[in-house]
Amino acid sequence: NLYFQGLKYMVPGARVTRGLDWKWRDQDGSPQGEGTVTGELHNGWIDVTWDAGGSNSYRMGAEGKFDLKLAP
């Protein structure tokens, strides 16, 4: 699974964008943008601060869902 392989790169400072299971509307800005991981992966959740200004926790394994992917 590509998403599980990418988890080791989901570290503080990593750049991310919305992924396969995104369901959080425009939390990442409008139009959709990139963000920066600000915390360690914990119980399948990870913290992100978006360039647009907001921050929140997103699923990276929790509930079998992956809200994020590494930015290109």
Rank of each mutant, 00 (worst) to 15 (best):
Q32P: 15
E34A: 13
D67F: 03
E40A: 14
F4H: 14
Q27P: 05
L68E: 01
I46H: 02
Q32K: 10
D47T: 15
L41M: 11
W50G: 00
Q5A: 13
M60E: 01
L7M: 14
V37Y: 00
A14S: 09
Q5D: 14
D51I: 03
D67L: 01
Q5M: 11
A52E: 08
G44K: 00
N1Y: 10
P12T: 10
P12Y: 11
S30T: 15
W45Y: 06
A14Q: 09
D47H: 15
V48P: 00
M60I: 05
R18C: 07
R15E: 01
S30I: 14
G44V: 04
V11R: 10
L7D: 07
L68N: 00
A71K: 09
E63I: 05
Y9G: 10
M60Q: 01
E34S: 13
E34F: 14
P72W: 13
S55A: 11
W22E: 04
Q32T: 10
W45E: 00
E63A: 09
V48T: 00
W50F: 02
E63Q: 12
L20T: 13
S30G: 15
G19H: 05
S30H: 14
W22C: 06
G54Y: 10
G53N: 03
V48I: 07
D21C: 07
V37S: 01
P72T: 13
N43T: 06
G39D: 07
D21S: 06
R59S: 04
G44A: 02
K69F: 12
Y9S: 09
G64S: 07
W22A: 04
W45L: 05
D28R: 02
G33P: 04
F4C: 15
P12F: 10
K8C: 15
G64E: 06
A71D: 06
K23Y: 05
E63H: 11
A71C: 12
Q32W: 11
M10R: 06
R59G: 02
W45T: 00
K23R: 09
W50I: 00
N56A: 09
Y58D: 01
N1E: 14
G64K: 06
L2P: 15
L68Q: 01
P31L: 07
L70R: 07
P31F: 08
A62N: 06
L7F: 10
D28S: 05
L20Y: 11
A14H: 04
K65A: 13
K8N: 11
D21I: 04
N1M: 11
Q5R: 10
F66M: 07
G53C: 07
E40Q: 13
W22R: 02
P31G: 08
L20I: 13
N56P: 02
V16M: 00
N43G: 11
A71G: 07
W22F: 06
K23N: 09
W50Y: 01
R25G: 15
G19Y: 05
G44L: 03
R15C: 06
W24Y: 11
F66A: 03
M60R: 00
V11Q: 10
T36G: 01
V48S: 02
Y3Q: 14
W50C: 00
G33E: 06
A14C: 13
L7T: 08
A71H: 08
Y3N: 14
S57P: 04
F66L: 06
F4A: 13
Y58F: 02
L70M: 10
N56R: 07
N43M: 12
G29V: 05
S55Y: 12
E40F: 14
Q27M: 06
